[in-house]
Design a protein around this nucleic acid. Structure first.
Length: 365
DNA sequence: CGCGTTTGACCTGCGC
DNA sequence: GCGCAGGTCAAACGCG
């Protein structure tokens, strides 16, 4: 197995633009629902089995029509970024529902993602921290510890009291858990090219999984963003990518340098989504959005109702409830959606995805 | 030669 | 205290 994995790893490296096919995992707060009756759509949402550490933290999105889609890094970046600009978080309670239900063990429900994810136990802090922690993630940033950050620490403390800080990183420095953000992709390659340059610094066998977990770090000196990649033991075709930290630099491979940049600003937005979208997707903001919006527009251009609202049931992502209440942090838009997304929502996918992908919704029109 | 990967050792947290 | 598991380090190695 191990060897097989290794081989695949090699393969991955050679496959730059991975087959980003059809599934994305998003933070629990990203849970959203969409008209269940609009299954024609580009996306269908459902809950999937999550890796242990993801339990309770993520939702699972199926991008039905995005089969075997090759995502150029820049596109992916855009994609995520656009997405994140429309995140619609759920209420703590709902989050609770959405996350805990599908999750087997309550204990493992909140693990390390507590900050980013909806921590049933501490809804408030979770939502707050998700945005705040983003401000104090990277090493450099840590240097400038501000009172704000200290507050964040407190929050984190609360959240992590159960989990405690993971290792203080060799120094006495208390280890801060940076906001994390995970998503799943159905891909043959583990390491998706998200536009950033990553250096693998470790690989570990994961318990209860035949697949090893790989650890990557952003190669940019001042950037401490990390990312873990592992395959789902449930479904080997699914790659779970977890980003941690905030990029403090623009995406090196982003053609549209414009958006990829969210340096300091990233403190708020860069977050976990980091790897994913330079500025983009930050933990708490990375939630589906425009895509659905797009879909909706495509299907019912007149629909004025927000695409998805709160998730009432983890598995159902059913149609929305009418009261989308978003925790403060979610209401903010840390970064500016790429021009394309802002200027023309419906152009989002067109802008990011190959026409191939857009076909479905379009054809439906 | 620079950069990235591999891989075993090491560190830390946590449960028993 | 001990063992397990996750996470990180860093030397060795491979590749362009």
């Amino acid at each position: 197995m191990e060897e097989k994995r290794k081989e695949s790893t090699k393969t991955e490296n050679s496959l730059e633009n991975t087959a980003f096919s059809n599934q994305m995992m998003i933070p629990a707060e990203s849970s959203f629902s969409m008209p269940s009756n609009s299954n024609s759509s580009l996306f269908d949402i459902s809950c999937g089995e999550l890796a242990d550490h993801h339990k309770g933290s993520c939702g699972f999105i199926d991008m039905l029509s995005v089969q075997d889609f090759n995502f150029p890094s820049s596109t992916f970046d855009d994609f995520l970024q656009n997405i994140s600009s429309h995140l619609i978080p759920l209420e703590p309670q709902q989050l609770q529902l959405s996350t805990s239900q599908p999750l087997p063990s309550p204990a493992s429900t909140v693990p390390e993602y507590s900050e980013v994810v909806n921590t049933p136990a501490t809804p408030n802090s979770s939502s707050i921290s998700s945005s705040s922690t983003e401000a104090a993630p990277n090493d450099d940033i840590k240097k400038n510890k501000t009172t704000v950050e200290e507050e964040e620490e407190e929050e984190e403390d609360n959240q992590e009291k159960t989990k405690k800080q993971l290792k203080p990183k060799k120094k006495n420095q208390k280890r801060q858990r940076e906001p994390r953000f995970a998503f799943m992709t159905k891909s043959e390659v583990d390491h998706l090219d998200d536009g950033y340059r990553w250096r693998k610094y470790g690989q570990k066998a994961v318990k209860n999984s035949p697949f090893p977990r790989s650890y990557y770090r952003c190669t940019s000196t001042a950037c401490g963003v990390k990312k873990r990649v592992e395959r789902s033991s449930e479904d080997p075709s699914i790659v779970v990518t977890t980003y941690e930290g905030t990029h403090t630099h623009p995406c090196p491979i982003t053609p549209r340098g414009s958006f990829g940049v969210m340096p300091e600003a990233a403190t708020f937005g860069g977050g976990l989504g980091s790897g994913v979208g330079a500025a983009g997707a930050n933990s708490s903001h990375f939630i589906m959005p425009q895509i659905l919006q797009y879909q909706q527009q495509q299907q019912q251009q007149t629909q004025q109702e927000p695409y998805f609202h709160n998730l009432s049931a983890p598995l159902s992502f059913s149609t929305a409830t009418s009261n989308p209440t978003f925790p403060p942090p979610f209401q903010e838009r840390p970064f500016c959606p790429s021009a394309s997304s802002v200027a023309r929502d419906h152009g989002l996918l067109q802008d990011m995805l190959p026409s191939k992908m857009l076909k479905e919704p379009k054809d439906e029109e």
